[in-house]
């Protein structure tokens, strides 16, 4: 089962996985961020009242929107790359090129979303 990994935390942090590792760890951060956000958001909307409205007010703030849009859009675009490569394994030799395409698509969509959020947030 590979349960005994014998890798210390420091070794793990120094792991130089480069581009593919960066997408892997950002996929996890984005997924975890969304899971926590959506769980708390659902509970806050369900309980409503003063506490619920307070939590949802934080979520509606444009600064938080920038964070959650990163989680959602990166997870969605990286997830699409993973799905395409896994369903068409012949493309796996080109996974680094796929990651480059992924970053171009992500930066274009996320950049435009952040631009819109900031312009609206600053009252434009």
């Amino acid at each position: 089962m590979g349960l005994n990994r014998n890798v210390s935390l420091m070794t793990a942090l120094r792991y130089k996985g480069q581009g593919p590792f960066l997408t892997y760890i950002l996929h996890r951060i984005g997924g975890l961020g969304m899971a926590i956000f959506i769980t708390v958001h659902l509970l806050a909307s369900f309980l409503s009242g003063k506490g619920g409205h307070f939590i949802n007010a934080i979520y509606e703030n444009w600064v938080f929107q920038i964070f959650i849009f990163f989680c959602v859009l990166f997870h969605a675009i990286n997830g699409l790359r993973i799905t395409i490569l896994d369903l068409f394994p012949k493309l796996i030799p080109y996974h680094r090129q796929a990651i480059t395409i992924e970053w171009v698509a992500f930066l274009a969509i996320y950049g435009f979303a952040v631009f819109t959020i900031i312009r609206t947030g600053l009252g434009g």
Partner: peptide, 20 residues
């Protein structure tokens, strides 16, 4: 609506997401 509003709606098409 702006781009971010449309995305918020698309990711969860619930009417509360377009009230603002």
């Amino acid at each position: 609506m702006n781009f971010a509003d449309v995305m918020r709606w698309a990711f969860m098409p619930n009417v509360t997401h377009v009230e603002s």
